[in-house]
């Protein structure tokens, strides 16, 4: 056990954790921030994506101790403090980009980063950026549509032939 400290959604937190504690376990079990999910154990589904020092990372594939001193944002920290959802979150609701909601936190975290780096992505770029986020409910249609809409692009013509 050793102490680890980091800033999560603007709040300084610390804990005494074992070397093999995963970042996602620290978030979910020690901090009881359960918005970040675990959907696989091979680092593929992306339900656990959080931002570490401004970069999207799979929190199930990073040790808590590796985040010593880091600034972390989780799904709980994406909306404004007054509860107003972010552009990406709002677009997911507006375009029905989620069903069961389990993959959604990871989708939002990945999409948020994508749009920071590429503010007006093409459909192909959105799909490529979602390589590491698996959704079983939506067939991806409305997720891709929501992300394009969040980027300010017109989605009214999508598949409406």
């Amino acid at each position: 056990m050793a102490k680890v400290s980091m800033t999560v959604n603007g709040r300084a937190v610390s804990g005494d954790v074992a070397g093999n504690r995963l970042l996602v376990e620290f978030l979910r079990e020690d901090l009881r921030m359960t918005g970040t999910h675990v959907g696989c154990d091979t680092s593929q589904c992306g339900a656990c994506v959080v931002h570490v020092n401004g970069k999207a990372v799979k929190s199930c594939t990073m040790l808590a101790h590796e985040a010593e001193g880091a600034t972390i944002t989780t799904i709980e920290g994406i909306a404004s403090p007054d509860g107003t959802m972010s552009r990406v979150q709002q677009a997911f609701q507006d375009h029905h980009g989620l069903q069961c909601g389990f993959c959604t936190p990871g989708m939002v975290m990945t999409a948020t980063k994508l749009l920071e780096q590429n503010p007006t992505p093409t459909e192909a770029e959105v799909r490529h950026a979602l390589e590491g986020n698996i959704c079983r409910c939506t067939g991806y249609h409305n997720i891709v549509k929501a992300i394009l809409a969040a980027s300010g692009q017109d989605v009214s013509k999508i598949a409406a032939e």
């Binding site: 359960t34 918005g35 675990v38 799904i75 959802m85 997911f92 609701q93 069961c100 909601g101």
Partner: peptide, 21 residues
């Protein structure tokens, strides 16, 4: 109608079984 359940799922406030301790 937009889904009312979305807000909790989009903000990390869902309550799934593994979230129950």
């Amino acid at each position: 109608s937009k889904r009312r359940e979305d807000v909790r799922f989009l903000t990390g406030a869902g309550n799934y079984t593994d979230d129950i301790n």
